[in-house]
């Protein structure tokens, strides 16, 4: 009966694991709904800021802002890699880190140094394992990232860019497209691409004659940093949603796999038990036959 007892023990262990993964799946689903709601809540602000930049770009003839100019003197490129703080989310972190490493290779091939910044414990641990020097690391960004937190980070990037300490700033994160699709993506945060006015692209009739306070140039100078902050914030909210989706999918797969294993173990146990009974019966019948024959 030793084998059957072992199978029962194993089945119990698997069933406990299934309970845990199922709970984690439910938690991830709840968190995903919240994160998605937050990510959708940030969209109107982002869209309006972008719209204002576009409107202003049509009014300012000579846009000259440090964030739009290309730096080339420092030979350094800042890369921010956004991963999760926790594991058990399938290939989420591995995909981001793989994409980041590809970009590192490209940058290093062009004889430029990387100023690496990591957000999320997984990225920090991975780059430490690889022996890469981390310029800065952040592990305080969770699934409820606040704008103020990201604002500080964006301001640091912009200050470093304006001081010409870095030639460009890239962000590697998981972009949320839909529940079924997320994709690791690299965006160039700085230098910004020059805003195009709507008139140039869509050839609208007459531009709106706005009254400006202060001047359009000053307004644009304030709006450009804000649009950088908003873009970085969007990266963080997208990453939070993608993480929860990945965890949800991974935990569902784990729950299903545990269910399959329980079924398999139950079948194996029944067979082992049946074999045991048959063997015992054979023993008894064999014994009885031997007695009657003698």
């Amino acid at each position: 009966m030793a084998k059957a007892r072992q199978i029962v023990k194993r089945r119990k262990a698997v069933s406990n694991i299934k309970k845990i993964t199922r709970t984690m799946q439910l938690i991830a689903t709840a968190k995903y709904q919240k994160c998605l709601q937050r990510a959708m809540g940030t969209k109107p602000y982002t869209q309006r800021i972008t719209q204002l930049v576009t409107e202003l770009a049509g009014q300012v003839t000579d846009i000259n802002h440090p964030l739009l100019q290309t730096n080339s003197g420092s030979g350094r490129v800042a890369v921010l890699v956004i991963t999760s703080n926790r594991g058990l989310c399938g290939g989420y972190n591995a995909q981001i880190l793989r994409t980041a490493l590809e970009r590192f290779r490209q940058v290093e091939a062009s004889q430029r140094q990387i100023q690496l910044q990591a957000a999320g414990k997984k990225a920090i641990a991975y780059f430490r394992f690889l022996g890469r020097a981390l310029h800065k690391s952040y592990s305080h960004f969770d699934d409820r990232v606040r704008f103020e937190q990201v604002q500080g980070l964006a301001d640091e990037f912009m200050a470093a860019y304006e001081r010409q300490e870095v030639d460009a700033v890239y962000v590697v994160y998981m972009r949320y497209i839909s529940t079924a699709r997320q994709r690791p993506e690299i965006i160039q945060l700085l230098p910004m691409s020059a805003p195009q006015s709507e008139q140039k692209t869509t050839e609208a009739a007459t531009p709106v004659q706005y009254e400006f306070s202060p001047s359009p140039g000053e307004l644009l100078a304030e709006l450009l940093p804000e649009s950088v902050r908003v873009r970085l914030f969007q990266c963080f909210t997208d990453a939070a949603v993608s993480e929860q989706v990945a965890r949800m999918v991974a935990m569902k797969a784990a729950t299903d796999a545990a269910g399959d294993m329980i079924k398999y173990l139950t079948r194996t146990y029944n067979r082992a038990r049946q074999t045991q009974i048959t063997m015992e019966l054979l023993d008894i019948v064999g014994g009885a036959n031997a007695i009657s024959a003698s």
């Binding site: 204002l52 409107e55 202003l56 709106v208 004659q209 706005y210 009254e211 400006f212 306070s213 202060p214 359009p216 000053e218 307004l219 304030e222």
Partner: peptide, 13 residues
């Protein structure tokens, strides 16, 4: 700054 209906277009900080 006060705003009423039919105000002229304005962009303001």
């Amino acid at each position: 700054l006060g705003v009423l209906r039919d105000r002229a277009p304005l962009l303001c900080r």
